[in-house]
């Protein structure tokens, strides 16, 4: 197995220390940081996502794998400086809407988007519509994701979309919605650009929206 395959494997198996040492070894072999991420860390995380969707992995496995990946990414950060944007497929901004603090699903989404090569901006939980709009206008993501896990906070997805309209910048961003009670019907009703039931579908949908599928 090549060092990158081993690195991917250590992410899949959630071996944090091994992910760190393999990342170091890959650097020592003078593999460039972007390749280490793409063919090592992110490749591993994609497999983790697949296993999660297939019901083979559960939350603990996914979180420990994600931690392994992020430890590796941390080591690579100094080597990525400067060309951060040139290598991303797009920027994904995500937050859980106002009134809602569920973030486990959102955090899994973040890992998968990072794994797929997106730059991710995490606005956290309980995010009011104005904050989504302000952050989007300032940081210009390609896609804004609105997460809601409660039927009581789903209407806030609609309000957030309305806030983009009011600020006359709705057409500058693709808006995706998701979370347990959300459905395609709901997404259509509130005129979101896309809905996905899980993190893997979400990444596919995002690529489709950006025309890079």
């Amino acid at each position: 197995m090549s060092v990158l395959e081993q690195l991917a494997q250590s992410v899949i198996e959630g071996k944090i220390n091994e992910a760190v040492s393999m990342t170091q070894q890959a650097l020592a072999e003078e593999i460039d940081a972007v390749t280490i991420i793409q063919d090592g860390l992110a490749a591993g995380m994609n497999e983790v996502g697949r296993r999660f969707k297939a019901g083979e992995y559960f939350l603990p496995e996914v979180m420990v794998s994600a931690k392994s990946m992020s430890k590796g990414v941390e080591l690579l950060e100094p080597y990525l400086a400067g060309d951060e944007n040139s290598n991303t497929v797009g920027t994904f901004m995500i937050g859980t809407v106002k009134g809602d603090v569920h973030d486990i699903g959102k955090n899994i989404l973040i890992m998968m988007f990072q794994g797929a090569g997106f730059k991710v901006i995490d606005l956290g939980v309980d995010v009011p519509p104005e904050k989504f709009v302000q952050a989007a206008v300032e940081q210009k993501p390609d896609i804004v994701g609105l997460c809601a896990l409660l039927s009581t906070t789903m209407p806030m997805q609609a309000k957030t979309i309305a806030a983009f309209e009011q600020a006359s910048c709705r057409d500058q961003f693709k808006i995706m919605v998701g979370g347990a009670p959300v459905s395609q019907d709901w997404s259509d009703k509130i005129t979101a650009d896309g809905y996905a039931a899980d993190a893997i579908e979400a990444v596919d949908m995002a690529k489709e929206l950006l025309g890079i599928a």
Binding site: K98, T152, M156
Partner: peptide, 11 residues
Amino acid sequence: KVEYEGGYYME
């Protein structure tokens, strides 16, 4: 307290 439309939750 985390407020939403209709009430609040204690998080």
